[in-house]
Structure formats: C-alpha cells, structure tokens
Design a protein around this nucleic acid. Sequence first.
DNA 1: CGAACTAGTTGATACGATTCAGGCACTCGG
DNA 2: CCGAGTGCCTGAATCGTATCAACTAGTTCG
Lengths: 363, 363
Amino acid sequence: MADAASVIDVARLAGVSLGTVSNVLNRPQRVAPATRDRVLRAIEELGFVRNEAARQLRAGRSRTIGLVVLDVGNPFFTDLAAGVESAAEGAGLSVILCNSADSTAREDHYLSLLQELRAYGILITPVSGKNGRIEELRDHGTHVVFVDRGSTKRQCSVSVDDVAGGELAAGHLIEQGHQRIAFVGGPLSVNQVADRLAGARATVRAAGLPKGALSLIRTPGLNVAAGRRAGEQIADMTARVRPTAVFCANDLLALGVLQEMTRRNLHVPGDVAILGYDDIDFAAAAAVPLTSIRQPRAQLGQAAAELLIDEVSAAETHQHRQVVFEAELVVRESTTPRRLIKPAGSGEPVRHTTRRLAGLPSR
Amino acid sequence: MADAASVIDVARLAGVSLGTVSNVLNRPQRVAPATRDRVLRAIEELGFVRNEAARQLRAGRSRTIGLVVLDVGNPFFTDLAAGVESAAEGAGLSVILCNSADSTAREDHYLSLLQELRAYGILITPVSGKNGRIEELRDHGTHVVFVDRGSTKRQCSVSVDDVAGGELAAGHLIEQGHQRIAFVGGPLSVNQVADRLAGARATVRAAGLPKGALSLIRTPGLNVAAGRRAGEQIADMTARVRPTAVFCANDLLALGVLQEMTRRNLHVPGDVAILGYDDIDFAAAAAVPLTSIRQPRAQLGQAAAELLIDEVSAAETHQHRQVVFEAELVVRESTTPRRLIKPAGSGEPVRHTTRRLAGLPSR
DNA sequence: CGAACTAGTTGATACGATTCAGGCACTCGG
DNA sequence: CCGAGTGCCTGAATCGTATCAACTAGTTCG
C-alpha cells in the first residue's frame, strides 16, 4: 500500500498551495467556494486523512484526555467514564481509559505515558492519598482534576460527600430498627472507605446507640470475592452475635455478601439486611434487589471533564473549584420486608433524597 | 510554567549533540558510559519528557492499539480489554478503549479517529456483518483484527465457537430432563446471538425432541433490563405452557430473567432453570449462581493483540489466521437441584470441558 | 488617479525526535 | 608506517501540519 497522502499531495492535485489546503480544513469560510470544492475533491480522491501526530506536534498539546481509574471491572467507573466521554466528545476531545487497578506502580506508569502523550489533561481517582508524581505533573504544566475525591484549593476536584453518604446509610438502617450493624470494607487507606465509615460511626453515635453497635469487618479489596469472604465470617457467627444489618463500602462487596447469605440459607433482609454503595445496575438486578447509596456516576464524570476543559481553555479566568455532589438513598428489598405483590414492571424504587450541598457548575 | 524541555535543551546542557541524546534514549549501549551519565543527569535536571507526538510523526505510526467494543458496560468486554492490555504492555504499546455501543455511527466515528491517530492497529468487534469502513481502513494500510467474530482468510480473527457453545448449553438442559426450552436473545442480526441459537436448535433436533421444544423470545438488546422484560413474559405464562428452562444469549439477560423469576416467586431452578452465556464474574455472584457458558475472555483479548502485533511487526512472514476458542460449560445452581450443605469457600463449580478445536497461536 | 481596503492565496518556518552518512581519534596487524 | 577497523559522536535532513507575514488582484472612496 502506498504511503498515506499528505496535504502536499492534496495541494499538488488541486493545484493550490498547501496553506490553502490547511485553510480548507480549518477555516473553510476563508477559502473561495470554487477552490474549496477543488480541494475537497482532491482530498476525496486521494483518501487523505489528517495526521493527528503532526497536528499535535504543531499544537504542542494533544486532544486526548487521560482518565485513570481504580478498577475498570467496577461498573461504577465505566459509568463514570461514559460521562467523561460524553462531555469530551462535545469539545472534540477523545478519552483514553487507564486502569490503575489499585496499584501505585501502574498509576505512575500511566501518568508517565500520558505525560509523553502531552495529554490535554488528566482526570484521576488517585490510588492513595499522596502521590508525588501528580504534583510533579502539575508543576510541569499538565492539568489534573481529581475525580471521586476532594482536594485542596490548589486544584479542581469532583467528588461525592462520602461522609454524608455513610450517615444516610446508617440512618436508614437505624430507622429500620437495627441495633447491631457491621461495616464491611477496606482497605481503610482508601479515602472513600474511610469517609463512609466515619459517617456511619457519627450517625450511630448521634442515635445514642451503644459503642459496639457498629462493628467493622475489614476486607483487602472492594470486589465480589472479598465480599463473599466477609459473608462467610458473618454467616459463621451465632445468631446472638451476628449483625442484623450490613453496610458495605460498595455494591460489589454487597453482592458478595448477599451471595454468601443465600448460600448459607440466611434470609435477606430477614436474618441480615444488606446495604450497598454506588447503586450500580447490578444492584437493582440482584435476586434480592439491593438497597444502595446512589452516586451520580455519569454526572460526576461529566462535571470533571467540564472543569478540566474550562481549566485548559479559559486558562486565565479559570478558578479552581471543588464540586461536591450529594449521595442519595435508594431503598430496595435487601433492607425492607418484601412486598409479595407489586405492580408489574415497577423496577423503580423509593428514593430518599437529601438536600443538595452543591450542584453542577452552572454551565 | 516554562515550555517543556526538548532533546536540544538536554544536548546543550550535557554538552553533546542532539544525536547523542537520542542514542542515549534509544540505544544506550552505543554511548560511552561517561557521556551517557552526563546526558542522563541533564535529562533529570531539566525534567525532560519525550514528546510522543514527535516520535510518532517520525515513525509514521503510533504505538497505540485501538480496541472497539460493543458495550463497555458488559464485563465480558472489560475482561477482554484486560487481556488485550496485558499483551500490549509486553510489547510497549498502549490501548485506547472505544465503545461503539451497538451503533454503526459511533463505530465509524471511532474508526476515523483511530485512522487519524495512525493507530498501530485496530481490534474490533464489529456492530454488524458488513462495514465498508473497515475494508476501507484495511485498504489504506491499517491492520485490523476481528475479535469475538470469525472472518474469511483475508484477515486475522479471534473468536469462540458460538454454535458449539449453543450445543453445549442445550445439551446440558436436555440432559437435565427439560423438554420445553426457551432461547432468550436478540437482535438476531448480531452474529453471536444467531450462532448460539443455531447450535441450540441443532442439538434439540438431534435429541429427537418435538419441533416446539425450543421456543424463541426475542429481545431488543443484550442487557439486564431486556432480560427483565423477557422474564415478565415468561412469568406471565401458565405453568403448563411455560418453559422449564431458559437459555439466554448472555449473562446480563440471564441476570434480568433471574431477577424477575425471583420477584414473581418462581423458583430457580425448580420452576425455571436458567443458563447464561459468557460466565462473567457477576454470574457466579448472583444469589442463585448461574450456570453459564464460559468464554476465555482474557485469552481472547490476548490472542487478538498477539495476532495484531505479529501482523504488524512481521509483516512479510505474517499469515492471516482465524483462531477459534472453544467454550466451556460451567454448571452451577441455576440449572441443578440445590445441595444444601457445601464445603465452605467452594466457589468452584463443576466444569465440563469439550474438546478444543484450536488453541492459541504457538508463540 | 492613487490610497486604502478586502478577499484569496502563497510558501517559508517551526514543532521535536529519529536516522544516517560521515568524521574524528585511536588501535592493531602486516 | 600504512591501511583497515572500531568506537564514539555529529548535525543535516526528515516526518505532516498549522501559522503568519507577504503578496496579488480586485474594489471602493475621496
């Protein structure tokens, strides 16, 4: 196959200069219609395709946003990615999705890669609290927005109030009369986990329940397998000790716990109520539909992308913002007595919305 | 922030020519140790980062593989992506994940984008049987490998024998004594769906069952919501007419059907047995663990990436290959009577492996 | 009629890394 | 002492696009 055609080939065929070809591509209104048509025909005939690498080299910056997430296997992040993508598409940008898989090494690897690509900007859910690489990137002029994680005034971030989410969850369980609640999650070095636990603790305390009312079952990760293992621990307890409700740090854990309860013939929510976090689609699809704390996943991604675009394109007027979304309680059967007859097709659950602390950026 | 340093800046600081800097980066053994150290120190001091766009422009081809899938929300594809990535990483390539979301328009959009990027190559699960754009790309010298879809001799492909998978599924259900089986899936324009149905049909016929033994419940898509709707139809039937087993075209559909069965108090597998396809992690994690047809997702991705790399790097000796993997039946409780006591922690199901038709490429 | 404008077009230049023919200094065998 | 060989380094040329000062040919206006 012949090498791809370049603007020069197009210019030659159309009998114009290469500057004119470039104008046809980028400012068509500046070119006389007759010339423009001639150039377009030449492009068609040669099958000319712009070389993005050359554009980027010239522009000094690529038109690709890097999105670095903790776990692509978690639907929460793919939904978030969809939000990022829709905002990016509107601005003519594309998205490259990177999976740090909870590993700082992989995170660093991808950050370097994105830096070499001269990424338009980076959206990242950092693995741990502090990563020097990120500071370094910013010092070198790469724009970084934190996703699903708050930040200081020095940069933009988009997050959900996890402490409030934890309060919402614990509040619901206490309302349902539970006095022995277990929090399942870990590692606690993950901010989201720690915050949700903190919110739950505060609410239990505020409700005047005894100290031991909220126990903690640590997990090594936030996936289904870890949930199953936590479920085994719970099922092994005698009924007198066993928590009557479990609040899981995310839905994957909750699904794991649920599976183990069913396997051991423990009724959900009769013997153990289960409450998850994220409200991924699979939560509603579980055989006992999961009560969960919904995060506005797609909006989170969209808002993050918009902040980044503002930061890059309106560099001078840009003010760093910390957007905080509010979580929402979605009640389903895993925490409420089962209604036996329901109107067919009503997948829609009761929702308890809290006040919103902060909305989307106005535009 | 100052502009990023270039090789020229590094060369100046280290007191060498820019050719030497390039050699340090790409063929370090050709540079005298003392010089090399001096250059490395200069790189360090300036915080020099290679500009990938410039490298690509020079090389005429990028080092990014495009992976275009039908649905990032389906764990089947994220697992497949993980396989692609692991193979790509080994070759120093990165992966950009594109979601065509079953839309030809989006597919075309991403193909154009990847062409502008001068992608190293493209791995794609095509939306429909024929897409002229793909032919066009290949004619323009872009290497394309089909994933999860067979192809003719003219190009490489990696797929799973879906007809055999359908046979495996129907065979298992017939063995369990089922005489009224429903196939849930659609649209039939999707090759995977049509093949699985064809395999099931052939097996039902071969078993000498009456014509109506296999009914067809069409769905508009392959997601959980569509499965729920199919489940409603099934639950609405009288017990005399209702199929005693359902074979779903993928696990998302199966999860939807399962949810609806449970909501309507139909016992799985007592009233209706359910068999899915793909064996995604959520299948094992369902409250009634799903029997499913396992596809070697990660291997599929890995093999596809390896074929692509061979095609590009060994252009002259390369022979197009059509690798076909064999599916595997994974039996769980959704099709078998429940054992009440199981050894704790035994998530491992019984596996019925069929003969392998074809393995991985030898290297 | 000439100055002042406009619309349309030109072509040299820059972006940053890589490559490669060539050059320099030195060693070794004959 | 010469020619060949080797190790190390140089710097001009190149990839394809975008930009912009400069130019041409018309048009308008005083």
